[in-house]
Nucleic acid binder design. Structure first.
Lengths: 201, 201
DNA sequence: AGTTATAGCAAACGATCGTTCGCTAACACA
DNA sequence: TGTGTTAGCGAACGATCGTTTGCTATAACT
């Protein structure tokens, strides 16, 4: 089943395809991804682009995984070193806002865009986006729960409510930056996040 | 230039096309709209569908306008009778949540979906979505400003911050309902909106 | 009744979509 | 050096995209 000789060059091409796909998809959307234009921008043939994946859908799934990995690296890893709870939550928010405004994805948050695009289209792509987002919300609410247990958030706070609000704010920031080019978007997001994470008084 | 005889039947078919387009676009997206499938579901020819508009882009713009009209009727009009300020803002939020969970658009909030889809694609469609959303945010912040002036919101509150947060929450509710099928989405949204609109203590 | 304008259909247009098929060049192993 | 494997190209596939072009009915006005 598995190839006897694993070729490093092949994996490298595959990565470059996924990288280009993620960049383009963040701007145009996952469904607007086209094998032809992808091939043209990579100076490859269409067959060479679709080959390592087998189908466009498989390429989309690979792009989602890669985008998710970038998000983890940009938002979760910087916060990983902080103490669980409120400290880590604020670190996440800082990294999150920096990520949204940092231009890593030219078209804004990859997962948010994919979520909006596929929320009405059943299938593997939607399932993948859904589970990715669900995992992230669980991470957020887990940290919120720890913060409550530590007394850094009000005892009557709801961890999942906190996660919901932080995620909503991030979506608002993303929209403000990408669609409305609002220079105040990050400031509004930061203020809103601070209010959600206001320590128990 | 203008036709000497305005035909009522023509306008009627045009409306039915736009109606079907809005429904489908809320599920699949504005760009995934296809003249062919649209024609098949309307029992019309492709030429008959595209005829009254001239181009697919014009049809998309018409769909945006119609979706905007539905949103106004569903969210703004029920609140119009209330006193300007906090009273009207809470009425808007009530109607907004009812609209999001009411299934008027089978694929969730039309404008939000279009905003996410076109935020990275310059052109008339993006411009239309942008101005629609900007107008709505202005409405929200105007009411917030009135509420502050009346003393129903803290004097140091920022009207545009309130508008940003309410809009973000609505996006979160929409995502929760459409993508994650979260039965708690509306409850989370209501709690978050109540916190944003908490009267000055 | 005769004339005119129009709504909408059937059919076809070139372009582009995702995918498949042979083939070739390059590399790994003996 | 000879042999086998594979990455990737060039070309073509049928399907479908948005759009255009005659044409035919219907309906309105004189």
């Amino acid at each position: 089943m598995s190839p006897r000789h694993s070729n490093a060059a092949a994996a490298e091409t595959r990565e470059s395809i996924v990288r280009e796909a993620v960049q383009r998809a963040s701007r145009e959307g996952l469904e607007a991804l086209t094998i032809g234009t992808l091939a043209a921008h990579l100076d490859m043939s269409k067959a060479g682009v679709i080959g390592p994946f087998g189908s466009k859908e498989a390429l989309q799934l690979a792009a989602i995984e890669a985008g998710n990995e970038i998000f983890r690296h940009e938002v979760w890893e910087p916060a990983e070193g902080h103490d669980p709870g409120l400290d880590r939550l604020t670190a996440i928010c800082d990294a999150w806002l920096a990520h949204l405004s940092g231009g890593v994805f030219p078209g804004g948050c990859f997962i948010t865009a994919a979520a909006a695009e596929f929320d009405g289209r059943p299938g593997p792509v939607r399932d993948s986006v859904n589970s990715t987002l669900a995992l992230w919300l669980r991470v957020l609410s887990r940290e919120a729960r720890t913060a409550i247990a530590k007394g850094d958030l009000p005892p009557d706070a709801d961890p999942r409510q906190v996660a919901f609000e932080l995620n909503s704010i991030a979506m608002g920031v993303n929209q403000g930056l990408q669609l409305r080019s609002d220079p105040q978007a990050v400031r509004h997001g930061r203020r809103a996040m601070e209010r959600v994470l206001a320590p128990a008084s």
